[in-house]
Design a binder for these strands. Sequence first.
DNA 1: ACTCCGGTCATTACATCGAC
DNA 2: GTCGATGTAATGACCGGAGT
Length: 689
Amino acid sequence: MDEEKGQTEESGKEKVVNVALMEREDMPREELQTELRNGLVIVIEKSDVAANGRKPRIIFTCERSGVYRDRSPQGPKPIKATGIQKCKCPFKLKGQKMANNDDWALIVICGFHNHPATQYLEGHSFAGRLSKEESNLLVDMSKNNVKPKDILHVLKKRDMHNATTIRAIYNARRKCKVREQAGRSQMQLLMKIVGVTSTDLTFSVCCVYLESERENNYIWALERLKGVMEENMLPSVIVIDRELALMKAIKKKFPSATTLLCRWHISRNVLANCKKLFETNEIWETFISSWNLLVLAASEEEFAQRLKSMESDFSKYPTALTYIRNSSWTKVHTLLELQLVEIKASLERSLTMVQHDFKPSIFKELREFVAMNALTMILDESRRADSLSPDVFACGSPEIAEYKREGRPIPLSSLHSHRKKLDLLQVNQDESKTLSCMPEIEMIVKRFNDSDDPAKVQLLRKLRELANPASTFLLEPEVKGKTRGRPSLKAYTSARRNPSKFEYVLSNEDGKSIPAMPSSTLSLQLKKPQKEKICQSQPLKPVPFITLFPSGIRPYIRGAKDVAADGNCGFRTVADLIGIGEDNWARVRRDLVDELQCHYNEYTLLLGYAGRYQELLHLLSNFEPNPSYDHWMIMPNTGYLIAFKYNVIGLLISMQQCLTFLPLRSIPGPRSSHKIIAIGYIYGCHFIE
DNA sequence: ACTCCGGTCATTACATCGAC
DNA sequence: GTCGATGTAATGACCGGAGT
């Protein structure tokens, strides 16, 4: 099973039904452990035990499958800033007990995910769960006064794939009511250099033991730091406490960086050192009003004071230093490891979780590409913009108000690249100057040329996705809606109808999702022709599927008709619309191929380049029933063909996009002579109006 | 400011059951 | 045999306070 990131491999043949026979007991998790390590988390969706005459079975899905179920009572706003990870991932496996013995068969129902594999498993709650064994270990260690940090470190050492975070440890300990008595670490560090991730977490860059806080010592420390940093990774902003020797050293070693003083340090020092100089509170008040100036004036003196007291501390220092040198190395290592786990978890959460607050469309382009913290900041700004009148741009962020007024999403490019960095890979700051994508492009071209036609189509789709970042194949999460109660079955009975291939291709073209079913599962659909009949024979009152169209258009939709859901459904729709009956879909395909070939120049121009022309030709050139999905109709390209060929005005209506195709080759006639056909595409069907 | 952790809410994993 | 709806326990995650 190599089902990664969407629809990569094979495109037609009967495949999968990968039957793995396993021992009954360990059937579920054994196999899935491997998946976990591939960065995909598999959970049990539901199961049936051997009761009521049922055969035992287990359905596995991806942790991101399904939709969010809102259980919160309508009314008060949620208290906690939480989010969801569900994105309707279609991945599904079925475990079935064999009739003859205790073995289990694992059948792949859908081997594709509609989201990329995760980079780290930290931050994925299910993956971070403690196993029975681990939790026993935790209890033991807690009883022995081992600190949470150290417990986590031990767990990580036991199993390198462990994805537990410190939170899980806290929760588990509380559950067991084990209190820890362990004292604080004896280790004290003199100089700690930390960095900040896009998710607002700090991490240790290095720890330095200094003999004393003198400029030369700092210079040495910074030199070492510079030595281990890449040339292009030098910091652009450095925040320090008001340590003059350090400031001087930084100026010498990092001349390009902006040095900022940490305000917290300043105010704390001011408070600690200056307040006692004043007899009454009133004088102190006047002092604090201009404290900024005074701090600067008083700094030299205060610095000398601190240095003096520090030096007296250092008289005791050598013994501590010896101890640290001998025993603290592992502690530093543990500390760093835990920080890394936290950072990984925060990055993953930013990538997969969508907080309820971030559902408005203004965040559309940012979700899952930008750190959550940045989104929170933007949300705050955006609320501030709301509270101001539209003309006031004096404070807050005028850009956000502007985007909101225009009703367009905040573009990803408007954010600083630091906030977009959601991995631990190195970056080259001078990307625009030194980086070139040509070698990679050439590799792609080579691979493209070596591939067969279906693979070429795949590659092209992927490339288009890359070229247009807004069209991620991640599904936009559902807006929290009313999901309670079982919907009435009266409206229509086709709730269990399999999605048509047409829909998957269209949604793929739209960049929102990937075909949820591999072609092999088609056999499942075909076994149930009666279901399709049910769809067709439904009375049209009220208009079925009406809720699946944009609300603004609904009043104008008078009726809808469904067609058979094979890979030709798009062409069936057109055939029925032009009056030749849906079963003559093959003629539509032939007509469109003719059209395409007769006007080669025109279409290469229209479609942009010859590759897309070939792709379209390949798509149309199939006259077998149930074609593989690279022969399914895609929009908008086929839309032009239909409008031109049949001289009609074509409308495409869907939640994702509504398009109109005009027949541009013919001379416009009187209005009454216009022939309009409308194709809708929705959740699982498509029909005519 | 930072760490730890209790209290509590929110989300999810999973089982069960009825309808088709 | 299959699927969807739904109840519910488990558990992850957030908030805020105490201590350092």
